[in-house]
């Protein structure tokens, strides 16, 4: 798949309380959750972002609570994918299980600045920064996780089995 969008850059250890604060967890309605996506990291994020945009994080993106509301909020807000240096493990599971595309790339994080347009080719495993010839590799996705994505998430994968 090709993902093309504007980058919103965040730092290290973006926790799931920042992605979707617990005060909004009295619902699991994706549209409601989307309204508060990234609110405690950047209160204006939801009003400024456009569908198709890409979130870029540093180390340990999605740490903290296991709330699946976090990837749901990101996906429902219209973010096409998340690229980070590394992901916290429950967020990593959740994203694959519920179908939010996420990618790991270490060198890319240091080179990218907020607002730049990027193209991420998940088949070739390459991120290109728009208007430049700067290219960065993304870490290969384990075959099992690829299968999860191909099947449309964990529940559909199980149903198929």
């Amino acid at each position: 798949m090709i993902f093309k969008g504007k980058v919103w850059k965040f730092g290290d250890n973006i926790d799931t309380d920042a992605i979707i604060p617990a005060r909004y967890l009295n619902t699991s309605d994706p549209r409601e959750l989307a309204k508060h996506c990234m609110e405690d990291a950047d209160p204006d994020f939801v009003t400024r972002m456009k569908p198709g945009d890409i979130i870029v994080g540093g180390e340990n993106f999605g740490c903290g609570s296991s709330r699946e509301h976090a990837p749901i909020a990101i996906k429902a807000a219209g973010i096409s994918c998340v690229v980070a240096k590394s992901f916290a493990r429950i967020f990593y599971r959740n994203a694959f299980n519920m179908g939010l595309p996420i990618f790991e790339s270490r060198e890319f994080f240091d080179a990218i600045t907020e607002g730049r347009e990027i193209t991420l080719d998940s088949i070739r495993g390459i991120i290109t920064i728009g208007g430049t010839d700067q290219k960065f590799p993304i870490s290969p996705i384990p075959p099992f996780m690829e299968q999860l994505i191909a099947d449309g998430g964990l529940m559909k994968h199980i149903a198929k089995k």
């Binding site: 296991s66 699946e68 429950i90 959740n94 299980n97 519920m98 998430g153 529940m155 199980i158």
Partner: peptide
């Protein structure tokens, strides 16, 4: 497994316990 990150608490008893998400719990 628990759809709550602090499920790891039960490791104190000599169990393997880990937090997962809601879809994992469904599965």
């Amino acid at each position: 497994i628990g759809a709550d990150s602090h499920t790891c608490t039960y490791g104190a008893l000599g169990a393997f316990a880990t937090g997962v998400g809601s879809t994992d719990l469904a599965a």
